[in-house]
């Protein structure tokens, strides 16, 4: 089950570039929250700070507080422990090329030392069903490599892999930007269903997508969060002039 996320005065840097400047917000549990903004505005950096993936870049650092449920992720736990609680779906589908579909789905469990075969089998079926991929691949789970699927299927496989660890939070960094419209709509349907169980944070450059899947939307600009409100409010009656310019397409 999802948990809510509380972010207080979060700052992040790449080298000397101040990519996130004093971000404060509260992301509610079991809802989808969209982050929009022009490219380079810091929205991707922001989600990468939520599971401490930001730190995998040696030049990067972050300060501030992020609380997920009971846990302050920068104080109470190591990056590895945090990432086990938080699923992440990346911009481009990145299944493990040497693993079968089955192994891809349970990779987060197996690589962390989980061995119970019965639960693994159950998890594969549950996750693939959650990712709406089960019907398409159930006959060659162990025969086919994850890389042999189509782009849209690969991305749903990555979603199955992320939900297989039963995370509390699901981060999606432009999950549909590399996909065709049909696959995109499938992914959007999925997000709509998955938010019943997980707290979902989705980064998108597509405003219609944000409007379709998310209850709340945050608008990022130049490393700052300009506005955060219900999606409906953001798209119909934004408080800030810059948000209005962006959503009406008047943005430079």
């Amino acid at each position: 089950m999802g948990v809510d996320i509380l972010v207080e005065s979060l700052n992040a840097w790449y080298g000397t570039t101040h990519t996130l400047q004093d971000i404060n917000l509260r992301i509610p549990a079991n809802h989808a929250t969209a982050l929009i903004g022009p490219s380079g505005c810091g929205k991707s950096t922001f989600v990468r700070c939520l599971n401490r993936m930001h730190e995998t870049n040696p030049d990067a650092r972050a300060t501030g507080m992020v609380r997920m449920g009971e846990i302050d992720i920068y104080k109470d736990a190591s990056p590895v422990e945090i990432r086990r609680r938080v699923g992440m779906v990346f911009q481009r589908p990145n299944p493990f090329p040497t693993m079968s579909i089955y192994d891809n789905v349970i990779s987060g469990l197996k690589l962390n030392g989980f061995r119970n075969r019965r639960i693994l089998d159950e998890t594969v079926e549950r996750s693939l069903k959650q990712a709406a991929l089960w019907e398409e691949v159930k006959d060659d789970l162990k025969k086919k490599s994850g890389a042999s699927l189509s782009g849209g299927q690969q991305q749903r496989l990555c979603i199955a892999r992320a939900v297989a660890v039963d995370p509390e939070v699901l981060l999606m960094d432009e999950p549909a930007s590399a996909l065709d419209p049909v696959s995109t709509s499938k992914i959007e349907d999925l997000i709509f269903h998955l938010k019943a169980q997980y707290t979902i944070v989705i980064v998108t450059h597509n405003m219609q997508q944000a409007a379709r899947v998310a209850e709340n939307t945050g608008f990022f600009l130049s490393g700052k969060m300009v506005e955060f409100d219900s999606t409906h409010k953001i798209f119909t009656n934004p408080r800030d002039k810059r948000t209005e310019d962006y959503i009406t397409g008047r943005f430079g």
């Binding site: 422990e81 990432r83 609680r85 990346f90 990145n94 299944p95 962390n112 660890v165």
Partner: peptide, 17 residues
Amino acid sequence: PNAVREAALGLGVPKWR
């Protein structure tokens, strides 16, 4: 590809693994 490494790290797999 680095994306493959990120996928594993994102699942909470330790760096050595």
